[in-house]
Design a protein around this nucleic acid. Structure first.
Lengths: 249, 249
DNA sequence: CTTGACTATAACGTAACGTAATACCTTATA
DNA sequence: TATAAGGTATTACGTTACGTTATAGTCAAG
């Protein structure tokens, strides 16, 4: 079932102009019929829902475009982080309500408020989930160029980039296990095999170990990797070392 | 105690440029010392708090200026309406959280969602308090879109609908009494309580009074209500006003 | 008395649409 | 089938609420 622009606008609660705008900037480009009318599909609506979520969270459209165009974008994961952010937002609202109650009492002369207290509810900088989202989807995390291996083709780079993201996410969930644990080592092996089979380069175990060390030594790597989990770079370095040493000879 | 601009900016969590801007447009003009530095007093901070409240609610700065410059502006009253709006906002957040949970299930293939459902949490068109605020401080034009009850669940709508019919029938039989009569006022109270307890929205007395006025102003309401008895809409409007004024304070 | 952090004004830039003008397309109704 | 009403497209300039330099004066600590 396809829908014309006004129908979509009415359902979503935005203006037709806004949808025009999203088309203009390439954020949401529906198909058109022979007379140039925009026809929105179910998939377009799903995408629009995603866009609205990110918009609700204050992301600029440019960033939203980057995020949803990134092939490593995991919709379900995004939804879960969004939920956490909304819960966080609600608790901030609670704070504001509490604050406004205090202010009312203050106006009545019943309570004194410090200046800091007067604005506590407005301060949006202390939201761990927004921070998480920014770190996960913000500038550098989306841009894998820091980590790319120049000699590869575009396709290979994209593949590598996706695999890296997958590996990082995967490993970030294993941080509680020891680097030498089976689960971790299995993930590392996957990474090692991928490098050898898909990148066109051969990585010796020593080279692989060296790569792990680069993750810690080069802060461009450290920074990007740690965005997937605190201390992940060091963790990976250790795990890769264990992997190399175990399989050596 | 006076504060320099950066201190204020840091406390409130906005930029220095923003405060410059507010000064430029005459929204918040602090005193200056002999070297031109802006010095913000306690009163300036209180005003800024007001400004931030209205901003949070999506008012444009121009309107905010009009509002707080209006000599009839009652700070306490404004705060109370603000609180109500925040509570309303929180319940919308609850809706969004519910929706996102549904969406996650939907992604998992567990549930089907209609297009309307997908965007329910984004629909900000129904908020009695924003309507109240607009009428009080904003354009007096009645925005009909605020009158719809689409955002209620099917069950709530059915319940509301039944209760409305009951109330209307009831009141149509009281048309011969004055709007301020005990019988009429009792029926009105029942209506008011129902709205507050069953619809998920909180109606202040002012909002309730506004609702009555809508019955007369919006011909869709007038038409339907008058089916129960000639002139019932106007009668209810009067009775609701009496009820609001009597119970105020 | 110098340096670094803070402040001022001025002026251009930008994001995300709003608004208006003009013209074509679709559909319900006479 | 004609015709009006309302939806749609493109183009283009306007607007809001600041961001971002650039340039220059001010203040507080070492």
């Amino acid at each position: 079932m396809v829908m014309k622009i006004k129908e979509v606008a009415d359902i979503v609660g935005i203006s037709v102009r806004t949808l025009h705008h999203y088309d203009e900037i390439g954020l949401l480009k529906p198909k058109t019929n022979n007379t140039g009318y925009r026809l929105y599909s179910e998939d377009d609506l799903e995408l629009l829902q995603q866009i609205m979520f990110f918009k609700e969270l204050g992301f600029p459209l440019k960033k939203i475009k980057e995020i949803i165009n990134n092939p490593s974008f995991d919709r379900k994961e995004a939804l879960e982080v969004h939920r956490n952010m909304l819960v966080e937002k609600r608790s901030r609202l609670d704070k504001m309500i509490e604050m406004i109650n205090k202010t009312i009492q203050h106006v009545n002369g019943e309570v004194n408020m410090t200046n800091k207290e007067k604005f506590e509810g407005f301060d949006f900088s202390y939201n761990p989930y927004e921070k998480e989202a920014r770190e996960r989807w913000g500038d550098k995390a989306v841009d894998n160029s820091n980590v790319k291996i120049d000699s590869l083709s575009d396709n290979q780079q994209k593949l590598l980039s996706n695999k890296m993201n997958e590996i990082y996410r995967n490993l970030a969930n294993l941080l509680e296990y020891a680097p030498e644990s089976d689960k971790t080592q299995k993930a590392i092996k996957e990474w090692y095999d991928f490098l050898n089979n898909e990148t066109g380069h051969h990585y010796s175990l020593e080279a692989f170990k060296g790569l792990g060390q680069i993750y810690v030594a080069d802060e461009r790597f450290t920074e990007n990797i740690d965005k997937f989990g605190e201390g992940l770079a060091v963790y990976m370095c250790n795990a890769m070392e264990v992997f190399a040493d175990r399989n050596k000879q």
